[in-house]
């Protein structure tokens, strides 16, 4: 079992996957620049992680997610360091649903995005509430304040904010990755360990 996990990690972090993880982390950290210029009110900061999960696999995505948070902390948002559990969950969950073929059908991508959003919200809420009293220095903090003004506890407010925002963010992320990978040449996709996630039997 351990040997097979080790082998899987080795496969998902070798050859083209190694630079891809580096690119995905950089994408997670810079995608905010594009959404900022285009005034798109969603984070999409797990876009690289989801891309890696589908193209390379869950373990590569876990590494991409964790490093994204670590480097986000280094580059000016230190609280991100404490949000590793949701990032790990995003990596594993997306890797598993991709393996189940959900990235070959758009409606399954929407379902996956919703579930992923709910999972992320559930895992982020206790961290955000207990360590930072609901303040994560993000743009969605105003929603937390709104819920708190309606007499909800800090935990409830953070959870409601997450349950409202995260599924939207993750559905857009999933659909973007689905559309990005759909038109890629078979020969290119075949070079990555997750080729079958996108190509199905063809890979």
């Amino acid at each position: 079992m351990i040997q097979s996990i080790k082998e899987r990690i080795r496969r998902e972090t070798s050859g083209p996957s190694l630079p891809l993880i580096g690119f995905s982390v950089a994408l997670n950290l810079t995608v905010g620049q594009i959404t900022g210029v285009l005034k798109i009110p969603v984070y999409l900061d797990s876009l690289g992680t989801v891309l890696t999960a589908v193209v390379s696999g869950p373990w590569a995505a876990v590494i991409a997610g964790c490093l994204s948070n670590l480097l986000a902390a280094a580059l000016g948002n230190p609280t991100m360091m404490f949000f590793l559990p949701p990032m790990i969950a995003i990596g594993i969950f997306t890797g598993l649903v991709a393996r189940a073929g959900w990235f070959r059908r758009s409606h399954l991508c929407v379902l996956g995005g919703v579930l992923q959003g709910l999972l992320a919200a559930l895992l982020s809420a206790p961290i955000s509430a207990h360590l930072f009293a609901g303040t994560t220095m993000g743009g969605a903090d105003f929603l937390v304040v709104y819920f708190r003004s309606r007499d909800y506890s800090i935990f409830e407010s953070v959870l409601f904010q997450g349950l409202l925002m995260d599924p939207v963010d993750k559905v857009i992320t999933y659909l973007l990755v689905f559309s990005l990978l759909r038109g890629l040449p078979e020969r290119l996709m075949n070079r990555f360990p997750g080729a079958a996630n996108v190509l199905g039997g063809k890979g």
């Binding site: 070798s14 083209p16 630079p19 690119f23 959404t35 798109i40 876009l47 891309l51 990005l180």
Partner: peptide, 30 residues
Amino acid sequence: FILRIRSFFSILSPLVLSSLVESVNRGMAL
């Protein structure tokens, strides 16, 4: 919003495609 998302996609698409190609080549080069 839809137009801007489309625009976002048109930026992201070449970026991701070129990066996947580059990942393949860089992985091989390493």
